[in-house]
Design a protein around this nucleic acid. Structure first.
Lengths: 279, 279
DNA sequence: ATTTGACTCTCCCGTGGCTGGAGACTGTAC
DNA sequence: GTACAGTCTCCAGCCACGGGAGAGTCAAAT
């Protein structure tokens, strides 16, 4: 016979745990000294304790273990328990995997935003935009309605998104109430159109670009700057222009608008060799 | 201002949960009626509640959420929280995946055992054994020591196991104390030898086979039967003979030895065409 | 003004699988 | 005898709530 301390060392279960199992009727000690209340265990207890420990390591609950041990002494008898438990675990794994991929997305987004912040001079620069596959929801109305477009995109092609959200603006001048624009997401080629969502290639080309830091209300200042540049360089601009939301309201927090990063991209005409064309 | 019931409907959080968040200081209502104690929430509460709900859906703890909300209002500020949490989730996923694969193994084993049981006539039959890659631990001593060999195999090549454990017996006659045998496991080709473990191809061939149901102590009766068959058919036997443990002590339960299934396989000499050779 | 009925409050207990601690007893060695 | 390790019971706490009792409150209908 083993005292509870010895038995604890043998089985690797803590004394507290053994008392708990006793209380639950899961592993009653074969002998309890009537006078002192001391628990004494034997070889069979060791075997039973090992079984319980194995099942606990598989994250079975104590009640279920009790049931399994009560009715059965062979693994064939608990096949349905095992299968049910496996199902439950797989559900849990799926959930957690979903969370991990959300976290990955957020982390990647934030790290990119930090890099964009460090690299950007907040000066107008000309660069080459690569063609990409995109999904878009064309809208007419107020700019501030674009959130609805992004909701539609999220639900429709969320799984295929592979870059920052952006907007295409089809108006040559600023319009308050009846703007013509498109909420867009870069997507992988596997994405398929859905109701209201167009999937297509967006052509690349040379563009004047400027990163703006701050709330969207102040974007006007950035437009002023980039348009001044375009005039000074006497460039021919092409529609639609783009706003890429490098960092905006996050997936968790709304964030501080003072830290928002938005890149304005305005395509400029170029000749076959890729050189910009002045009028 | 919203009463707690309205607010509950807006946010999808139960009233109990909202009270709990209040108590924890996580989401204090902007107004608590001093006389009635009624809680009243506003638009900002909605925003905060949404954030909390998103973080809870990602299985963050309330304390951690409080910390995140306390210091930060931007996702960049909680990158380390997110990364830590992701690590924790990945650990949990790994654990659960390990459990699922154990469960899969047990379930598959039991189902196979049930099939073997249904299909077997418990009569001697001759069949063709396929060659296989195996891992083995050669031992001399008592048969009952073979458990140690299987422990070594489990630790060494457990990940590569692809079939039932078996033993090879190199003695022509029964030996009590100094048997020469090898504890073996079929393994995938990727397995690599380790200390005391040999990995090699085991040749196939024609064999006389008999499934025995019952405890190992009664295996003698099965040997009697199969040897009688071999004599009656005047076959030439080849060493080593095999015992395949179709169903023995399980990974959870020891099981009932009366249900153990063991297949004895004794290779017999054959000519090039695969026909058995009588003397 | 009252009544009804829906709403809300606080307080306590329970969940699961333990862990920690207090204070009292027991066993064994010197 | 005495020290000291071991063991006992009982109570509290963890986490994020849910259930329910019993009392008070709000808004509309009578």
């Amino acid at each position: 016979m083993f005292s509870i301390g010895e038995f604890s060392r043998i089985t690797g279960l803590s004394i507290k745990t053994l008392r708990h199992y006793h209380e639950k009727g899961l592993l009653p000690p074969p002998l309890v000294d009537a006078r002192s209340g001391y628990r004494y265990y034997n070889e069979q207890s060791v075997e039973r304790a090992r079984v319980i420990a194995r099942l606990r390591a598989m994250q079975f609950g104590l009640a279920e273990i009790a049931e399994m041990l009560g009715n059965c002494d062979d693994e064939a008898d608990i096949l349905d328990h095992l299968e049910r438990h496996k199902q439950a675990l797989e559900t849990s794994i799926r959930t957690q995997r979903g969370i991990v991929s959300s976290l990955d997305l957020i982390i990647a987004t934030e790290k990119e935003a930090i890099r964009a912040m460090e690299n950007s001079e907040f000066q107008v620069e000309e660069k080459r935009l690569e063609p990409m596959t995109m999904a878009g929801v064309r809208m007419k109305g107020r700019y501030s309605e674009c959130g609805k477009g992004f909701s539609i995109l999220g639900r429709g092609v969320g799984r295929f998104v592979c870059g920052k959200p952006f907007c295409l603006y089809y108006d040559a001048e600023y319009r308050e109430d009846d703007a013509d624009f498109e909420a867009c997401m870069p997507v992988r080629a596997a994405a398929r159109p859905a109701k209201g969502i167009s999937i297509r290639e967006l052509a690349g080309g040379r563009a004047a670009c400027l990163v703006h830091k701050g709330p969207y209300e102040e974007l006007g200042r950035a437009y002023e700057k980039i348009l001044a540049y375009i005039q000074s360089q006497r460039l021919n601009t092409l529609l639609p222009s783009r706003e890429v939301y490098l960092k905006g309201p996050g997936m968790i927090f709304k964030g501080n608008p003072r830290n928002y990063l938005t890149e304005i991209q305005i395509l400029v005409a170029e000749d076959e060799a890729g050189n910009r064309m002045n009028p």
